[in-house]
């Protein structure tokens, strides 16, 4: 099995899956009807992408596992999502800030992956990049609107940024998998992605009158070391397949 490629597909798929699962929890609860539908659309985009990535991971693994098996029958330590996406929804501002920090990495990453030397990865990225571009535009506008909004919205967005900004760096911190795939022309140079992610992030935050906190990067998720939040997310997401194996409708 191509271990590096498998890991990479899991990382892309798990990021989309866990964020999609978290965002979907707002369905029916968002502060305005329009936001509710927009967030549900985002969640559906992400879960659709997760299915593509995880099906690819299963194909690379060659052990007969499909996206459903990987999503619903793995334990927390086998998940490869970054810590950012498993941070709790919090208030609406926190959910938007998490989305924005993710989108500012996701969009440039998918744009680069669309030119990947691995055609199966390029095919998924071409489709997903258009969705991610829209997600980014929307979360950026909302972060600016709320950061540079009322006194209360500003305070809440700054609080969300203080909490979540340290987690963004994990997405652009290369490890041996990233290096190996870059050398094979499968995945982009994360240093270049980081430049673009930082530019998009800092330009937006400046316009939103928000200040990123000076804090060390917090990481672990990419290698399976998760916070306790992931366990709660999985217990909810995986309950049905765990309690009623093979159930379908």
């Amino acid at each position: 099995m191509d271990r590096d490629l498998f890991e990479f597909a899991l990382r892309m798929g798990d990021n989309a899956l866990i964020l999609g699962q978290q965002v979907s929890a707002w369905c029916g609860h968002a502060p305005a009807l329009e936001e509710d539908i927009a967030l549900a659309n985002t969640a559906l985009d992400l879960i659709g992408q997760a299915k593509l990535w995880l099906d690819l991971a299963g194909e690379i693994e060659g052990a007969g596992r499909d996206a459903d098996a990987l999503a619903f029958l793995r334990d927390a330590r086998a998940f490869r999502n970054a810590l950012l996406v498993e941070q709790s929804n919090g208030d609406y501002g926190q959910t938007l800030m998490r989305q924005f920090l993710f989108d500012a990495w996701h969009f440039p990453t998918l744009k680069s992956l669309a030119a990947s030397g691995e055609p199966r990865i390029a095919a998924i990225a071409v489709k997903a990049a258009k969705e991610a571009e829209y997600h980014f535009e929307r979360s950026r506008d909302l972060v600016i609107g709320l950061g540079d909004g009322s006194e209360e919205s500003h305070v809440r967005m700054q609080r969300a940024l203080d909490l979540l900004y340290p987690f963004q760096g994990e997405l652009t911190a290369p490890d041996s998998v990233d290096e190996a795939l870059r050398a094979r022309d499968v995945a982009p140079d994360l240093a270049a992605v980081k430049l673009e992610t930082d530019r998009l992030t800092l330009e937006t935050l400046a316009e939103a009158t928000l200040r990123p906190p000076p804090a060390p990067v917090r990481k672990g998720g990419k290698t399976g070391l998760h916070s306790e939040g992931l366990g709660r997310i999985l217990s909810d997401m995986q309950f049905l397949q765990r309690a009623y194996p093979g159930a379908s409708w």
């Binding site: 305005a32 009807l33 329009e34 936001e35 539908i37 927009a38 659309n41 829209y134 535009e137 929307r138 506008d141 909302l142 609107g145």
Partner: peptide
């Protein structure tokens, strides 16, 4: 029709709704 804080977000909301 829909609600939105400004024209750009109204277009985005219209896209989503």
């Amino acid at each position: 029709s829909l609600h939105a804080p400004d024209a750009q977000l109204a277009i985005k909301n219209a896209r989503d709704v």
